[in-house]
Nucleic acid binder design. Structure first.
Lengths: 246, 246
DNA sequence: CAGCCGGCTGATTCTCGAATCAACGAGCAG
DNA sequence: CTGCTCGTTGATTCGAGAATCAGCCGGCTG
């Protein structure tokens, strides 16, 4: 029995990897054509896998999308939590959340694009509610704002949930300019954008100060060790250097 | 010939109305199921019209969506232009843009939902680029920021285009909390949200002051006369009371 | 080495909805 | 009143692609 179990485990591991491969391919294809606009055949081809295998791992197309979302947002959630727990100061917290989001985009623009563009779509027929995971992230941020208010770091009259929404709205739209290709995607431009987003959110258009990097600590990319919880754990299977694929 | 012409005109008028009816139905259905998720049959039924007639007025499903977008964003563009031209001060301009957007949402949540949710979707096959109209709105806002910078009302180091994106990001996300049903949609809540959006954008989280209405002038809903350019001229055909169907 | 087990394959089936089109009838001209 | 024009109708056609399934093959067991 022992050996059997070992084999079973090995198999399971391989299968898990397969599964990830397909998920990754799905992200790729969704980002190119959108969920509705793409065929399962596309995903299979992208993954270098037989058509039928997709159905071996996922009940149907909807479940596939659901999985993409879950792993994507969950990964993001983890990173944001990590970032928040490492900063005590409100301002620092905000900056690090913005940082995490931009870093995620730098690492995997495609993945971010899917999460951004496909959010909010709710197929009347229930299924997986794509908004759910995102709502959880919002909730986390909202409670951070509430806490900051309790400690007198943020004006009391602001609605925490709305504040959270505005934060991610600013981030999302900042990223959207890149996603849509309205702006060139240079590292430098990306950095400036990140700083402007944080600065505008904190001090507004009128109070924005020049040259304030999003994270004043040298911590930079080390908010969380990359391997611990890459943004989309979809990508986690691969050698961690896979980073810049475009 | 004279009589003929008259008849032609009458017919054209009727046709135009039919067309609008179908457009309105399309907005309704798109907002419920999304563009890809709905059938032309749904639109036809909603419009109380034969299936085939939809194809009499629109070449295909894509053109239908294109028209919805064009009229929607164009209407918004007009209102924003109007709002901007009536205000000299930068801060007032910002507040009135926010005001226009929220007012549009109050008037026609469905329509706004479609415009928000379907932006950014670009079918690789060219067709109508849905981003285009939206990009024009962004451009307008960007030039406003540039102008404000020239007059020293806004810090020079900020990127105007990014600033514009952030403005609409804040607005959009503020509205999204309502679209997603995360918050109750009361007039009062809506007003507070609007003020918070404007305030946060101008002074940031840290500098936000309480109780500053988006438009200090009593002008309120009168940024533009409602009949002149309703946000979605899609709706302009009907008796103006049709508004609140849910 | 044989035999089988289960992940894997991809042609086939079947559903669904976009787009077509032949025919209808309301209104207008003559 | 007759006949014609053209907006309107909805059954029909057709293609796309989701989901199925009968068998294949690589690797493990005995």
């Amino acid at each position: 029995m022992a050996k059997r179990v070992t084999n079973k485990l090995v198999r399971t591991e391989r299968e898990a990897e397969r599964r990830k491969t397909i998920l990754r391919a799905a992200v790729e294809v969704f980002s190119r054509k959108g969920f509705q606009g793409c065929r399962i055949a596309d995903v299979a081809r992208e993954a270098g896998v037989a058509y039928g295998l997709v159905y071996h791992y996922f009940k149907d197309k909807d479940e596939l999308l659901g999985s993409v979302f879950e792993s994507g947002w969950q990964g993001f959630l983890v990173r944001v939590q990590g970032a928040l727990s490492q900063q005590a100061d409100f301002e620092a917290k905000i900056r690090s959340v913005v940082h995490v989001a931009f870093e995620a985009y730098r690492r995997d623009p495609r993945g971010v694009k899917v999460l951004i563009l496909e959010v909010g779509r709710s197929p009347s027929g229930g299924a997986v509610n794509r908004g759910t995971e995102f709502a959880r992230v919002l909730e986390l941020a909202a409670s951070m704002f509430a806490e900051a208010q309790a400690q007198g770091q943020v004006p009391k009259h602001l609605d925490p949930r709305l504040s959270a929404a505005l934060l991610f709205g600013a981030i999302e739209m900042g990223l959207t300019t890149f996603v849509m290709g309205l702006v060139e995607r240079t590292d430098e431009v990306l950095d400036r954008a990140r700083d402007q987003v944080a600065e505008t959110f904190l001090r507004g258009m009128l109070g924005a100060r020049p040259n304030v990097p999003a994270l004043s600590t040298g911590a930079s990319a080390e908010v969380l060790p990359s391997e611990a919880a890459p943004w989309t754990n979809v990508k986690s299977g691969t050698k961690s250097k896979a980073a810049r694929r475009d």
